[in-house]
Simulated assay, not measured.
Amino acid sequence: MKLKRYLLVTKPGIIFGNLIATVGGFLLASQGKPDWALLCATMLGLSLVVASGCAINNCIDRDIDSRMSRTRKRVLVTGAMSVRAAMAHGVVLGLLGFACLLAFTNLLTTACVLFGFIIYVGVYSLYMKRNSVYGTLVGSLSGAVPPVAGYVAASGRFDSGAAILLLMFCLWQMPHSYAIAIFRFEDYERANIPVLPVVRGVSAAKRQIVLYILAFAMATMLLVVGGYTGYGYLAVACATSVWWLKMALGGYKAATNDIVWARQVFVFSIVTITALSVMMALDSHAPVLAVL
């Protein structure tokens, strides 16, 4: 049971989601010739750092978590684990993760992951989440780091492909996060977290969801335009983006239940990004242009 607490405080679901994106970015840059040992080292190092960030985030957010029905049973809220133990666990995991990345990948990959860690723990968790409606936007930067880190680990450089991945995953995070904030509206309101639906209303959040999905759809095309992916990826990108947009526009129907609708948008956001990560890996090409 004690080991289970140490696992739960790291939010395994978030780690798994980040790993899918990391593998997608890595195999995209590998162009069909992956270094499997390097991929394993990248996945291990990144997983440890993400686990560290989540553990430390749990320490920071324990007062907020106690007010939200979704999080009130977390181990730091219930007292099943002490803050001191969770913080020590997080620090150790972070040190091991960065050591792994530094030893087996490259300095640029380590720097990318460090950037994401600082944004998530230092900027988002400590300040922006509690104080600004733009916290979601800032948090999206850290959420977009895993595929970029995977790409940079395989390629050894930050080029236009890495920049496209950063843009894609930042844009994806926004409707994904706003959908959560809508169907968890009461939780966020109770915890006094200034997310867009709470501060400016659900209607404003719906508009932003549609606009961000449109922007995301255009960003996904850049991998094809740049020659990084082929027609298989293009077909999946078009199909998922169009369906996601259709689903988002459904939120304007008069009879729409906002909570049910937002859950559907959220679930399909995961389907979309998972499908694109898989297709990036399966349908990668040598790029036409890599200028950055």
Rank of each mutant, 00 (worst) to 15 (best):
K2H: 08
L3F: 12
Y6E: 01
V9I: 14
K11H: 10
G13C: 07
I15L: 13
F16R: 13
F16E: 14
N18V: 06
L19I: 15
A21R: 04
T22P: 08
T22M: 03
L27V: 12
L27I: 09
L28T: 04
A29C: 10
S30A: 15
D35C: 07
W36L: 14
L38W: 12
A41R: 08
T42S: 12
L44F: 07
L44S: 06
L46P: 00
S47R: 00
V50T: 04
A51T: 04
A51W: 11
G53E: 04
C54W: 00
C59E: 03
I60L: 14
D65A: 05
S66W: 02
R70M: 09
R74E: 11
L76A: 02
L76Q: 05
T78Q: 09
G79I: 10
M81L: 15
R84C: 06
A85R: 05
H89C: 07
V92C: 04
V92G: 01
L93H: 03
L93K: 02
G94Y: 03
L95E: 11
L96R: 02
N106D: 13
L107F: 02
C112M: 15
L114M: 15
I118Y: 08
I119T: 02
I119D: 00
Y120W: 00
V121F: 03
V121N: 13
Y124R: 03
Y127E: 00
N131R: 14
Y134A: 13
T136M: 01
V138R: 05
A144F: 03
V145M: 05
V145K: 07
P146A: 01
P146T: 06
G150T: 05
Y151F: 09
V152C: 06
A153I: 10
G156W: 06
C170A: 10
W172A: 06
Q173N: 11
M174G: 04
M174A: 01
S177F: 11
Y178G: 00
A179H: 02
I180R: 02
A181W: 11
F183S: 09
R184I: 01
R184D: 06
F185N: 02
E186I: 11
E186V: 11
E186W: 07
D187C: 07
D187F: 13
R190P: 02
R190Y: 00
A191W: 06
A191M: 07
I193F: 11
L196S: 05
V199F: 04
G201N: 03
Q208N: 08
V210Y: 08
A215N: 03
F216I: 09
A217D: 04
M218K: 09
T220S: 14
T220D: 10
M221V: 13
L223H: 10
V224I: 11
G226F: 07
G227N: 10
T229Y: 03
Y231H: 14
Y231N: 13
A235E: 10
A239T: 09
A239K: 01
A239H: 00
W243R: 14
W244L: 12
M247Y: 00
G250S: 01
T256R: 12
N257A: 11
I259V: 12
I259Y: 05
Q264A: 06
V265G: 03
V267F: 15
F268M: 15
I270R: 02
I270M: 08
I270T: 07
T272L: 15
T272K: 12
I273P: 10
A275F: 12
L276P: 10
M280K: 06
A281G: 07
D283H: 03
A286Y: 13
L289H: 12
A290R: 14
V291S: 13
